[in-house]
Design a protein around this nucleic acid. Structure first.
Lengths: 207, 207
DNA sequence: TTCTTCATGTAATTAGTTACATGATTGA
DNA sequence: TCAATCATGTAACTAATTACATGAAGAA
């Protein structure tokens, strides 16, 4: 009845990090940027709230520390927290949710110019390249046995494989689409679908 | 100063649909489910708000109709709306944002059991299969020249190709990961990364 | 004629982002 | 010693979701 608000997936994401080791809130935000944010992106300020919720539920403990006259809070998981995590893992979870503004623009390309569409595709390509940069660095680190949390390499590899293939998918799609759009007339409203590509698309959907 | 709230990507998504033809709000929600929702998923109630915002900005017009004693509202784009769309297309837009709870669970698989992880992967596989079902139906329809908005086939194909490859990526990843996890001991905390797969992951990231 | 599903909409709530503020540390 | 960046946190706001409500149309 009295209510600490219910736990969300974001709560479990933070709790999962706390299961690794204690972190200060700022450290959590950094870690989120690098790792978890790839599959569960959340704003920094959210990461200042969630640990408080975890404490209210008894899943984490807060310790007040200080650097000079400035306070900081370090959070650690509790036994109840580990149990809550285990329960969470027993549910299969939600499938991927994609938000892709650039793809939305391509969908309705006829309201812009062909050059607009090409620029959009170039931006998508650049995005994939930039994401992959960090990904590649991480992969190399693990190969050289220098990745963080080496005892978790098995899990990290599963995730790394997905992300790698995902970034590559975006890049390859953007390259292919650029080739297709390059043959469009200046007004995309007059573009005609290439029959061979239509067939190939249908073929790929058939598995 | 006085403020109709600013336009969001969701606003432009709705406006793009209105550029195709006028729709009632309910029709918009159906259309969103089938097409645009794949790359820009939004709750139904949102789609009742956005058109009002478009009207306030002068980008759409509302017409009150009725079915019996029940009112309904049909929205149509204005010339200013088309110009706004064209301006929107001049900006390259944001890259894809992924939210993938199942991948998050796999990342921290050590807090559940190996069976939990396998169940999560099975769910991911099923999700991809289900999504692809509709996708395949649409691809076949276009192949048979029976898709909606045939004059937009060129754009539809670009988008269809991305989604097809994306769903397939999820399925293939889930299959591969299932094979890997099947060899884990019951406690994923004791799982060891397969060196050959590590190398392959790094190799794939290198493009 | 009743049940179910389609169709239409609003209200309440929550999740999340943007913007701001400021102390500590480092390096030019 | 000043500027820049790292570290820490809150406040205000907005976007989005969940839940609800109810009329119309078609099926049993």
């Amino acid at each position: 009845m009295s209510s600490t608000p219910a736990l969300s997936t974001t709560s479990y994401a933070v709790l999962s990090l706390l299961a690794l080791r204690p972190w200060s809130t700022y450290e959590l935000t950094r870690q989120m940027d690098r790792s978890v944010g790839r599959m569960w992106p959340r704003a920094q300020s959210k990461l200042y709230e969630e640990p408080k919720k975890l404490v209210a539920h008894g899943l984490a403990e807060a310790t007040a520390e200080s650097t000079g006259r400035r306070a900081r809070t370090v959070y650690a998981i509790t036994d109840a927290g580990r149990e809550a995590l285990a329960r969470w893992h027993r549910e299969p979870g939600a499938g991927p949710v994609l938000e892709f503004e650039q793809l939305l623009k391509i969908t309705f390309a006829e309201h812009g110019t062909t050059d607009d569409a090409l620029a959009t595709l170039t931006a998508a390509r650049a995005w994939a390249r930039a994401q992959n940069e960090e990904n590649l660095a991480a992969a190399r680190a693990y190969e050289a046995d220098a990745g963080p949390f080496p005892e978790r390499a098995a899990q990290t590899m599963l995730v790394g494989r997905f992300l790698t293939d995902y970034y590559r998918l975006v890049a390859e799609w953007a390259d292919w689409a650029t080739g297709v759009v390059a043959d469009w007339p200046p007004d995309p409203g007059r573009a005609v679908a290439v029959p061979e590509e239509m067939r190939e698309t249908a073929r790929r959907a058939d598995w």
